[in-house]
């Protein structure tokens, strides 16, 4: 191969002390270390695509089979909170991207504040999600746990939703299939929220490490890779939002 790499190799032999402290022993250069871990993160995201892919596949089939149930099920979701959460998550993606930018530019305070903002927005997202879930519990819309089809066999019994959409009553078997909609709703938003919880947890640790200057010494691999994860979780929500909330909002 090229001469340069032979020279690198020669330098490696000369002594380990020339490497920065964050370089792991089995890498030849920090560039190789960055490339390898960054690529690994992408490969991991591939598995995540396929993981959520199975859920999207199930969604696609059942939405086509039980379209009326999906429409009236989605009317039970709050448009306000759903759109709010999309906004929160997109802004958090921006603050995360700024975090990576600050790490690249070695701006410690900027990084810390970006991470704190991302952390708070992430918490905000989970807070809103829990408000929505609580409402579902109260309305008996958690599949398998005292599930009630009343709001679908007799939409007028739920005046708040009814005055907005004037849904027609569903026949009992189709109304029962709203369980499938809510099952997918909980499975998809639950999986997504699980990823958010993990992300917020890692952010909390990162904030402390960033304050200690861990990522602004030129070694920002971890921030970059976590950014990829965070953006990926954002992308999942970008699809969940239209699929779950926006099925048919017109009356």
């Amino acid at each position: 191969m090229s001469d340069s790499q032979v020279i690198v190799h020669g330098a490696e032999k000369a002594g380990h002390h020339e490497h920065p402290s964050y370089q792991r022993h089995h890498f030849e250069t920090t560039a190789q270390q960055f490339d390898a871990t960054n690529f690994a993160m992408w490969i991991f995201l591939l598995t995540e695509i396929m993981f959520f892919g199975g859920l999207f596949m199930a969604y696609l089939i059942f939405r086509n089979w039980y379209y009326p149930a999906f429409v009236e099920g989605s009317h039970q979701l709050s448009m306000f909170w759903g759109t709010m959460n999309t906004t929160v998550l997109i802004v958090s993606s921006f603050t995360m991207a700024m975090g990576v930018w600050c790490a690249e530019k070695k701006l410690k305070n900027g990084l810390v504040w970006s991470l704190i903002l991302t952390f708070l927005l992430g918490l905000g997202f989970l807070g809103i999600k829990s408000i929505e879930w609580t409402e579902k519990v109260e309305k008996h819309h958690v599949p398998g746990f005292h599930y009630s089809i009343q709001a679908f066999t007799n939409p007028a019994s739920d005046p708040e939703v009814y005055k907005e959409y004037h849904d027609n009553p569903l026949p009992p078997d189709m109304a029962a299939h709203t369980q499938v909609y809510f099952f997918l709703y909980f499975a998809m938003t639950g999986m997504h929220a699980l990823h958010m919880v993990i992300g917020v947890g890692i952010l909390a640790v990162m904030i402390f490490l960033a304050r200690a200057g861990a990522y602004t010494n030129g070694h920002f691999t971890f921030v970059e890779n976590f950014g990829l994860y965070w953006h990926f979780v954002d992308i999942i929500w970008i699809f969940l939002y239209p699929l779950l909330y926006l099925i048919s909002r017109h009356t």
Binding site: M1, S2, Q5, T29, T30, A31, Q32, Q33, F34, D35, I90, V91, S93, F94, A97, M98, W101, E104, K105, G218, H219, F220, T221
Partner: peptide, 25 residues
């Protein structure tokens, strides 16, 4: 050659301007 080369490592990392991020958001 492209994936072993150092050009894409931390040392010569392409930094996207914050203005791009703002526009995108």
């Amino acid at each position: 050659a492209h994936d072993n080369a150092a050009a894409h490592g931390e040392d010569e990392h392409h930094i996207v301007s914050w203005r791009v991020y703002l526009a995108i958001v």
